[in-house]
């Protein structure tokens, strides 16, 4: 068994695809019709065969209260790793992305949290370089 996909619930799949590709820089991997929605995944440009991120419709009635509670407490839906957190945050801010948590040192990692405009908060993490 291995991990091949993880997911975030998104308000609008088309808008999410736009944000996750044009703003965050992921690449479209799969776009398959599934009922009135799509099986829509993106992957990092540098790791196209790696774990995919599924942009999952947020229509189920449990999703709203679940996400509202997480967002109210500032808790991210998922977390992405970057090489240079400060540079990435500056790049995203330049594109109009809003951060709920500016870059900060949190124990062994450095992290920040932004709003993905699709209903979620997303964490960015930079791990210390191996000595």
């Amino acid at each position: 068994m291995r991990l091949y996909v993880t997911s975030v619930f998104v308000d609008d799949q088309a808008k999410a695809l736009d944000f996750y590709t044009r703003t965050l820089g992921f690449r479209l991997k799969r776009d398959v019709p599934a009922g009135d929605a799509r099986w829509l995944t993106v992957v990092p440009a540098e790791d196209p065969d790696g774990v995919e991120l599924l942009l999952e419709p947020a229509g189920h009635p449990a999703v709203g209260p679940y996400r509202d509670a997480l967002v109210a407490d500032g808790i991210p839906a998922t977390s992405f790793q970057v090489e240079d957190l400060d540079a990435e945050c500056a790049r995203l801010r330049g594109l109009g992305v809003a951060f709920t948590m500016a870059p900060m040192d949190a124990g062994p990692v450095r992290m920040a949290v932004f709003d993905d405009t699709c209903g979620n908060l997303i964490q960015l993490v930079e791990f210390p370089k191996a000595a």
Binding site: D73, G74, I75, P76, T100, M101, M104, D105, A106, G107, M111, V113
Partner: peptide
């Protein structure tokens, strides 16, 4: 600061692993 940020700062500065419920 959000609850998440207070928790992260508590962990980073004190090294304490207090749960979110406790911080809340």
């Amino acid at each position: 600061q959000t609850l998440f940020e207070v928790c992260a700062a508590t962990l980073a500065e004190d090294g304490s692993g207090l749960s979110r419920q406790t911080i809340s």
